[in-house]
Design a binder for these strands. Structure first.
Length: 881
RNA sequence: GCGGACGUGGCGAAAUGGUAGACGCAAGGGACUUAAAAUCCCUUGGGGGAAACCCUGUGCGGGUUCGAGUCCCGCCGUCCGCACCA
């Protein structure tokens, strides 16, 4: 029977059109079945999708299709993270308006996504640059402002000199801007902040409840929040030595137990005490200026020497007024953490030790490691930060570190100076408030007005949205909103006097902090969300995206959800119940002799034996095959999804993306792998045709009995079904792929057996035809979530008038997977020597008798009695000789 | 420096503490073909053996266990996150 090759290009377009016309992926908000919300991180409309998108969206689509088949009402929407710098860069470089550029990109990428055959509900599509979206964001900003979740203050900020804008701490990677890569500078600016630090503790605590998040991400967030418990201690200053009669200095410490090891006190260069002292000391002023001149770039911090300047100020030890400690200004103290002041205990802190060794201040060890004689224990170049007992510490001697911390806190809390306790316990967080002001055009305008008489005045709700002006020029660096001739000049809503609009726009991470809520009801015009609807759909049951958002987007969204709850826009705290972070798509690199990179599409690979050679197709020039790296424009090792889809079809791209590597690990894109996937598509098509031929007109009624060949086939089908169902649930797509291959091999073998018989024997028995029909239907349904177009084509070929995309997931017949006899491996001393076949319900005695009768066992035991026989029911037998 | 993950054939990888290497790729051999492609069949961790089968094997060294790729301790290596955080 001649079977034509499967024509992916023709079939895929046809099925996409049918799905579209029948609107089968649109999900109504009226829920009649249990809900399942699957979401992939929405893309930035850069112009074209890349292989990372293909991987991400394929995974989400498999989950969506399977859950739909399992009877859930599945919400699977798509939208666009559409504000941001690249649109402005395009405007500057190519004189195209950011809006035009963005919407053209959206059109192009939407077309590409559609060609992937994703089961998305496009009726819910949103773009964050749409005033219909950001209007609600502005409304929430004002709600947050009223609820004390937002504040405006002057602060030292990260300034990106290339993008000419402020960055949040989370957006500074290794001292560089996350987008531009420029070395970030410190500037003092007045900024809008979301008070994420108010939620530091809840955000930390709730991490323990996110049991379907990767441990790694939870740990990263925990470290980022950076809770530390310590003591805030007031050190009295010797007024005779202070510049303007300052009487005390507050320091924060997590090691109050080491107070008797103190050798000095130090403050940050931008600490008020340092500034005051500098006014009377030009050498100190020069030192401080020098500290500030030194860069804040990572490389400089790493190599920077610990430098200090003795101010001449003396601080009194909290437990001994007579004990005076010198106060230094030191370059390694950060004003942003704690109080910007520390006491230095060099014996047990490496930085402090480096410092005293440079300035000759000496050290006294106060924690003795176990088994060490306190009298002879000295610290030279390496601080001791391990466990031990207190030494040289008066009333603390002999205590553990924990006991000493507690004792110091207890005593200093009770002691007072100026009627206030000398110390109090304090929890400190590393997390900083989220600065959201950006000095850019293409973002959501911050809806406030600055009035010379009334101060900051919120735009009234009925005047929202504050829309961006379209007539802007990008001919100069800086913020076009600020330069616009009219836009910012408005009347004050309060006093009607001349006032100006805020010209900063919001960080684009604000846009992506609630889009998943908006998807639940993108149509509502009067509010960001419909509370009943958002609470019915949220949380997202399965969120899928890149690990690069482990902190940024995922932490902001967790905060934003809490802020929305406080302002009555959602009813829950945690937006993402399940999170999966997928690996990157990587590819070999190719390099020409002159150092230029060559793209995979320009390269031909030849191999003789095990050695592979690359050469440039155009000229034949030999190329060096370089390391496998993340696909990037700079290394030119990208593969265009469009080309793959038009050459092999979307199903091939989807299948290969799922097949080779575990989804959380990097996957290497290779031509060999793609061709393997393509061959399998063709093989499945042939197999389904052949199986349909064998099954012929299978009996409609299920036969009462199945002979061994049919029973074996049914077992293979149901076992594959059980395994795929289980592994899909765990998102082990690569293992699912293996099960499908295995089942396809088994089905192929079964067909081969029948055709072999068929030549000289009778046609297959009715029970086998029925089993074959069942098997091939299961096979098609198993690969349908991954290769939906091929599956529809096969489904139709099998005679169904319905869509496989709407077919319910098949039921496993568990009985088939239970064997009447079991073949157990037999180990002797933990090493497999033989198999034993016993009835499934055989007792231990029966199994032992059978095992002892085995030749292999007899040979090893040589007539002796075994020491022990371990029988694990249904599993294994181990004979200990 | 601190924290974490990972380490299995030529390669990507499987493996609730229970037969290590499923499945795929690559390679080799064969069938079909005038030939090639496609397809189909066989072999493939290492060593020994004619074969049955035996020995050995999951980075290295220990430990727990009847039994360890999996659990524990210590190294080595790779990758990731954080980092003058007091």
């Amino acid at each position: 029977m001649p079977i034509e090759r499967y024509n992916a290009a023709e079939a895929e377009a046809r099925w996409q059109k049918i799905w579209d016309e029948r609107g089968i992926f649109a999900t109504p908000n009226k829920l009649t079945r249990p809900k399942y919300y699957v979401l992939e991180m929405f893309p930035y409309p850069s112009g074209r999708i890349h292989m990372g998108h293909v991987r991400n969206y394929t995974m989400g689509d498999v989950v969506a299709r399977v859950k739909r088949a399992m009877g859930f009402a599945v919400l699977h929407p798509m939208g666009w993270d559409a504000f941001g710098m690249p649109a402005e860069n395009a405007a500057m470089e190519r004189k195209v308006h950011p809006k035009k550029w963005t919407y053209e990109n959206i059109d192009a990428m939407k077309k590409q996504l559609k060609s992937m055959g994703l089961s998305l509900d496009w009726s819910r599509e949103i773009a964050t640059c749409d005033p219909a979206y950001y209007k609600h964001q502005q409304k929430m900003f004002l709600d947050f402002l009223r609820s004390d979740l937002v504040e405006r203050r002057k602060s030292k900020v990260n300034w990106d000199p290339v993008d000419q804008t402020v960055l949040a701490n989370e957006q500074v990677i290794d001292g560089r801007g996350w987008r531009s890569g420029a070395v970030v500078e410190q500037r003092e600016l007045t900024q809008w902040f979301f008070k994420i630090t108010d939620y530091a503790q809840p955000l930390l605590d709730a991490l323990d409840t996110l049991d379907r998040w990767p441990e790694k991400v939870r740990l990263m967030q925990k470290n980022w929040i950076g809770r530390s418990e310590g003591l805030l201690v007031r050190f009295e200053l010797d007024r005779a030595t202070t510049p303007a009669g300052e009487s005390e200095l507050e320091i924060f410490t997590t090691r109050p137990d080491t107070l008797f090891g103190a050798r000095f006190v130090a403050v940050a260069p931008d600490h008020p005490l340092a500034a005051a002292a500098a006014k009377k000391n030009s050498a100190l002023a020069e030192f401080i200026a020098e500290c500030k001149r030194r860069g804040t770039a990572q490389a400089e911090i790493d190599t920077a020497e610990k430098l200090g300047f003795d101010t001449g100020i003396k601080a009194e030890h909290p437990f001994d007024k007579a004990w005076k400690l010198p106060v230094y200004v030191a370059n390694f103290i950060l004003m942003e953490y704690g109080t910007g002041a520390i006491f230095g205990c060099p014996a047990h802190d490496q930085r402090d030790l480096d410092f005293v060794n440079k300035y000759g201040l000496g050290n006294v060890p106060v924690v003795g490691p176990p088994g060490v004689d306190p009298k002879t224990f000295v610290i030279a170049d390496t601080a001791y930060d391990g466990d031990g007992r207190m030494i040289n510490s008066r009333f603390l001697d002999g205590m553990t570190i924990a006991e000493a911390k507690e004792e110091v806190a207890r005593r200093l809390e009770k002691e007072t100076a100026d009627n206030r306790p000398v110390a109090k316990r304090q929890v400190n967080f590393r997390l900083r408030d989220w600065g959201i002001s950006r000095q850019r055009y293409w973002g959501c305008p911050i809806p406030v007005i600055h009035c010379p008489t009334c101060g900051v005045v919120p735009v009234s709700a009925e005047d929202l949205p504050v829309t961006l002006p379209e007539d802007v020029a990008f001919d100069k660096p800086g913020n076009p909103l600020d330069r616009h001739p009219t836009w910012k000049h408005v009347k004050c809503p309060k006093c009607a006097g001349e006032a100006t609009r805020e010209t900063d726009t919001m960080d684009t991470f604000v846009d992506s902090s609630w889009y998943f809520d908006r998807f639940t009801d993108p149509w509502i015009k009067t509010a960001p969300t419909d509370l009943a609807v958002v609470d019915a759909w949220m949380p997202v049951d399965q969120y899928i995206g890149g690990i690069e958002h482990a902190i940024l987007h995922l932490l902001y969204s967790r905060f934003f959800t809490r802020a929305m709850k406080k302002t009555d826009h959602v009813g829950l705290d945690e937006p993402f119940a399940g999170l999966f972070t997928q690996g990157m798509v990587v590819h070999e690199t190719y390099r020409r002799a002159n150092g230029d990179w060559a793209a995979p599409a320009e390269v031909k690979i030849e191999s003789n034996g095990d050695v592979r050679h690359a050469k440039l197709i155009a000229t034949g020039e030999p190329l060096e095959i370089g390391p496998i790296e993340k696909m990037s424009k700079s290394k030119r090792n990208t593969v265009d999804p469009d080309e793959i889809i038009s050459t092999y079809g979307a199903d091939v791209a989807r299948w290969f993306m799922l097949s080779d590597s575990p989804p959380d690990r990097d996957v290497e894109w290779t031509e060999r792998g793609v061709q393997g996937a393509w061959r399998f598509v063709q093989r499945l098509w042939r197999l389904v045709g052949e199986a349909a031929g064998v099954a012929g007109s299978a009996p409609a009624a299920r036969p009462a009995q199945f002979l061994p060949p049919a029973a074996a086939l049914r077992k293979a089908a149901h076992s594959a079904l059980a395994k795929v169902t289980e592994d899909i649930e765990k998102l082990h797509f690569n293992v699912c792929v293996a099960h499908i291959y295995e089942f396809a091999n088994a089905l192929g073998a079964a067909i081969g057996d029948i055709e072999g018989d068929g030549r000289d024997g009778p046609s297959p028995s009715p029970d086998l035809r029925w089993a074959m029909d069942e098997a091939v239907n299961i096979l098609v349904q198993l690969f349908a979530p991954m290769m939906p177009h091929l599956a529809e084509e096969c489904w139709a070929a099998l005679g169904h008038a319905t869509l496989v995309a709407q077919a319910p997931w098949p039921q496993v017949e568990a009985d088939l997977l239970v064997e009447n006899t079991l073949t157990l491996p037999v180990q002797i001393n933990g090493r497999k020597r033989a198999d034993v076949t016993v009835p499934r319900d055989a007792g231990k005695a029966e199994i032992e008798t059978a095992v002892m009768a085995l030749d292999a066992v007899k040979r090893v035991l040589d007539g002796k009695t075994p020491k022990k026989v371990i029988i694990v029911p249904q599993r294994i037998v181990n004979v200990v000789a």
